[in-house]
């Protein structure tokens, strides 16, 4: 600053401005600031690019050796150097699918309860408890899964399905039930995806305008009819977005699944049979991989997982964005 404006304020009319002599400034601060925050912002694309390139390059040997059979073949044989990731891809998709089938109605129910039905004093605590599910570390879910969920499913739930409901002869519930299974993985993933789905659903339900509700009630709808026929349709694509967001979480989940799915690279129709997911395959074999091709194959599994979650999250974002910008009537 050319003249020290404030330093000689002791005499004379306090605020009387003196003639301005110079407006020259020497503030490189703003340029530095802009460069710094731009550099920080650019780190995000750079990091993502680095991840994509690093994994792509590392995955290339295995992918080029196996070709399309990498995702179609079910033979994962480290000794023979055969790497077919189909069982892991299958397991990832099926366990996540089970999770969504279980979690979606539950999450929808909780969200409706919290946004439309619950008395005010109950909303905060219940929402807090459900949100807290998202804060529990994956490895704690796994621990709980091993020592509580898996035995409980094996000793109580599976007999109920087989004996009480007589579903033992259907392919879904055939075979021996050791405990660790696709079903256990699906259930634990459902619990883990639940808070994500219900949080998004709650938000979009709350965002539905009052007028939609009033219009339905004015037509003589019951409260449930109002919810089902006016509120839910209005929020539909947002809810689907939330479900897909939960799917994205489930697909990439590693520890809890690894601890309860049984880790066997086979495709079985039975939900009671052990399975594998892409994330748990990497988690289990990565530190033991000695050959370059094996490492490369695991990287390739990571690459496939990367691409799948990219697509799923892209879809979710698009749907949530669509509901946020209002329905096209």
């Amino acid at each position: 600053m050319g003249d020290a404006i404030a330093s000689s304020g002791t005499s004379g009319g306090f605020a009387r401005g003196r003639r301005v002599a110079s407006l020259a400034g020497a503030a490189p601060g703003d340029r530095v600031y802009r460069v710094v925050i731009t550099a920080f912002a650019l780190m995000i694309p750079a990091l993502l690019l680095l991840i994509a390139v690093a994994i792509g390059v590392a995955a290339w040997p295995a992918l080029s050796a196996a070709g399309l059979s990498f995702i179609t073949s079910s033979e994962w044989n480290v000794q023979a150097g055969k790497f077919g990731a189909a069982p892991a891809i299958y397991g990832t998709l099926v366990s996540s699918f089970i999770a969504l089938v279980l979690a979606t109605p539950l999450a929808l129910g909780v969200a409706i309860f919290l946004s439309e039905i619950a008395p005010k004093w109950l909303r905060q605590p219940v929402a807090f408890l459900v949100d807290l599910l998202a804060a529990i570390p994956s490895v704690v879910y796994g621990l709980w899964g091993i020592f509580f969920l898996v035995p409980m499913l094996r000793d109580h739930v599976v007999p109920f399905f087989r004996d009480t409901l007589h579903l033992g002869n259907t392919p879904l519930f055939s075979g021996p039930a050791y405990g660790p299974s696709m079903l256990a993985a699906g259930v634990i993933l459902a619990i883990m995806a639940l808070p994500y789905i219900s949080a998004v659903t709650r938000e979009v339900l709350i965002a539905v305008p009052r007028s939609q509700r009033d219009a339905a009630l004015a037509l003589g709808a019951t409260k449930w009819e109002m919810i089902w026929d006016a509120v839910i349709p209005y929020a539909r694509s947002g809810i689907i977005g939330g479900v897909i967001l939960g799917l994205g979480r489930a697909l990439g989940e590693t520890m809890a699944v690894t601890m309860v799915i049984g880790n066997r690279p086979e495709i079985s129709a039975s939900l009671l049979a052990p399975g594998y997911t892409m994330a748990s395959l990497i988690a289990n074999e990565f530190t033991e991989a000695t050959s370059d091709l094996h490492l490369s194959a695991l990287m390739a599994v990571g690459a496939v997982l990367f691409v799948i979650t990219l697509i799923v999250n892209g879809m979710a974002r698009w749907l949530v964005w669509r509901v946020a910008s209002g329905p096209k009537s």
Binding site: I5, G17, V20, A21, L23, A24, G25, A26, A27
Partner: peptide
């Protein structure tokens, strides 16, 4: 005071302090 506040050398920060 005769100095163009939009002149190339003029700093908006200095302007705003006056």
């Amino acid at each position: 005071d005769g100095t163009d506040i939009y002149a190339p050398g003029a700093d908006p920060i200095a302007v705003r302090r006056h």
